[in-house]
Design a binder for these strands. Structure first.
Length: 213
DNA sequence: CCTATGATGATCT
DNA sequence: GATCATCATAGGT
């Protein structure tokens, strides 16, 4: 469904806005990952906003650390983190610079490059599962910490870029609590998705794990 | 469809 | 040492 989309690249100004404006506006946009084997493209269907140091759910809530430094930098750059010992997740930094806000790219529909994505996501049972979840999306697009701090504004040789695509009608955009976020961060309905899209990941509430012995 | 659980290691306190 | 913006798998409904 990606053929025939508006492929105009998004500019810096798109990301240099408050994260709660940018996050829902990213739905329907096309993220392009350029790999040595060719491009892999995903139409975004689910995102979450993380609002910097004022947000208990954000990695920046307790201030700047080695891991989250990119969030304090310019809008439009990729913040990639490693978690659960196995997985990577991709955010795009939003404005204003220094607020340390970002949008977690949670799910999407893979178009161009699906053959490449299937090789990396060999356990996916169907194409809807290729990028159904943030770590699955990162795996499908071959994204790891080598891309942390990378500029996602289109330019020659860019590893990442975001194209205009086709935003859904506003009445098809839903919002609710963020997946896996607990405590005081759970009250904010800062997860955004396209209603009824089969590539949106299932919601899961925060679940504290029992300590192992 | 659903819920439960182990995997696995960087990061932060 | 505890936590973690998760996933794959197994098994029940």
């Amino acid at each position: 469904m990606i053929d025939g989309e508006d492929r105009t690249p998004l500019t810096r100004d798109f990301f240099d806005r408050p994260v709660l404006e940018v996050a829902p506006d990213l739905l329907g946009r096309i993220l392009v990952r350029s790999t040595p084997d060719g491009p892999i493209e995903v139409r975004l269907t689910e995102v979450e906003a993380y609002a910097g140091e004022i947000d208990p759910g954000s990695h920046a809530f307790r201030g700047r650390t080695r891991r989250n430094g990119v969030m304090y930098g310019p809008p439009g750059h990729a913040y990639v983190y490693f978690t659960y010992g196995m997985w990577h997740c991709l955010n795009l930094v939003c404005g204003p610079e220094g607020m340390a806000s970002g949008v977690l790219l949670r799910a999407g529909d893979i178009g161009t490059g699906a053959d490449l994505a299937r090789k990396r996501r060999f356990s996916a049972r169907n194409d809807r599962e290729l990028a159904k979840g943030p770590a699955r999306l990162a795996t499908a697009l071959d994204i790891d910490r080598a891309l942390d701090g990378t500029d996602a504004i289109a330019r020659p040789g860019a590893h990442l870029s975001v194209l205009h695509g086709t935003p859904p009608p506003r009445d098809q955009v839903r919002s609710g609590p963020r997946t896996g976020v607990g405590g005081d961060g759970a009250v904010h309905p800062w997860r955004f998705w396209i209603d009824g899209d089969p590539t949106v990941s299932p919601y899961r509430a925060h679940a504290p794990r029992r300590r192992s012995t």
